[in-house]
Structure formats: structure tokens, C-alpha cells
């Protein structure tokens, strides 16, 4: 299921942009499409008249850009200091194991994606994760497994309908 890219629209609003607009444009493309596709890199490069290698280089430099569409359930795992002390490294590892993907990736069915963030700003709930913006506090192995299971169950039921 591929969604038509909105990169053309973004570029229309930057008709006479020069290379200094590269990062704002990439941010808008990501906001519109959810990620930076290959086509988006090529189109932005052609629009700004800079090599695609340069656009790719800049985009990979910054953590904020992703190159795969996010899953329908986007899991952000806090790797801030408090969460780290409370074992977020283990949470991340477990999450990767349960979903069979690495941080930054999206599962093949497009359901889940994992991203690590430096600090979510909810240290009192450590170790904390957020799924589509909803926080889940004091995550343990069982809790995480259950969350994933529940989501899969709901999705399967929805699909059956």
C-alpha cells in the first residue's frame, strides 16, 4: 500500500528556493509523507540543483530524518539518562526481538516501527515508551509483550471485519 508522495506539492511552495532551503524542505517532505523516499531525495536534488549524494548525505547526518515509512504503530523508546538507569537498553533490545526489526526500521507488514529518542521528557515514568504519542510508563518485558500482542489482536480483528 503506497501513498502518493506529496513531495511535488512541497516543492511547488518553494519555487525559487536555493540550497539553503534544503533542510526545511526535507522537514516538510517528511511531515507530509512520513519519511524521505528515494524519489523525494531525487526530486529535491533536481529542484535545488544539487547532487542527490549531497541531499542524502545531509539527510542521513540528522537523526530527525527517516528513510522508511513509519509503521501504523510508531514506538518511540526513550534512551535518556533516567530511562537508561532504569534499564531502557534492555527495553530496546526486547522490543527489537519481539518485533524482529532494529531501531529505525519498520516491520514488513507496516504495522510497527521503532525509533530511539534522547529523552521524551517523562523521567518520572522511566523506563518509558510512547506508541503513536501515547505514553506507557515503567515498561517491563511482560508489559511490552502484552502491548504488542493487544495491538496485533485488534488489527487482526479489524482486518477480519
Amino acid at each position: 500500500m503506497s501513498v502518493p508522495s506529496k513531495v511535488g506539492k512541497v516543492l511547488e511552495s518553494h519555487s525559487f528556493a536555493k540550497r539553503d532551503k534544503l533542510i526545511p524542505i526535507l522537514q516538510e517532505v517528511q511531515a507530509a509523507d512520513g519519511y524521505i523516499s528515494k524519489q523525494a531525495v531525487l526530486k529535491v536534488a533536481a529542484h535545488l540543483n544539487i547532487p542527490a549524494s549531497k541531499v542524502y548525505g545531509v539527510a542521513t547526518f540528522y537523526n530527525q530524518f527517516r528513510f522508511k515509512p513509519v509503521g501504523r504503530y510508531h514506538i518511540m523508546i526513550c534512551r535518556g539518562t533516567a530511562c537508561h538507569v532504569k534499564g531502557s537498553a534492555g527495553v530496546l533490545k526486547m522490543c527489537e526481538e519481539v518485533l524482529g526489526i532494529k531501531a529505525g526500521d519498520t516491520t514488513r507488514d507496516g504495522l510497527f516501527s521503532i525509533e530511539t529518542v534522547a529523552c521524551i521528557g517523562a523521567c518520572g515514568l522511566a523506563p518509558v515508551i510512547s506508541i503513536n504519542g501515547e505514553f506507557h510508563a515503567k515498561i517491563t518485558s511482560d508489559k511490552l509483550r502484552k502491548l504488542v500482542q493487544d495491538i496485533r489482536k485488534t488489527e487482526a480483528q479489524n482486518a477480519a471485519k
Binding site: K38, V41, A45, P51, A52, S53, K54, V55, Y56, G57, T60, F61, Y62
Partner: peptide
């Protein structure tokens, strides 16, 4: 590649200890 040949098919990719020289999309 960029300044002399204007081909620019390679550039720095990623950052810090992860960085490497590669083509677009690696």
C-alpha cells in the same frame, strides 16, 4: 568528484563514528 569533475556521485553519509563515504542511498 564534486569540485573537479562535477559528478558528485559520492559524499559523506551519516554522522560521527557511523559516517562513511558512499553514494546516494548507499
Amino acid at each position: 568528484c564534486e569540485e573537479v569533475q562535477s559528478v558528485a556521485c559520492i559524499d559523506f553519509v551519516k554522522r560521527g563514528s557511523d559516517s562513511f563515504i558512499g553514494c546516494a542511498f548507499d
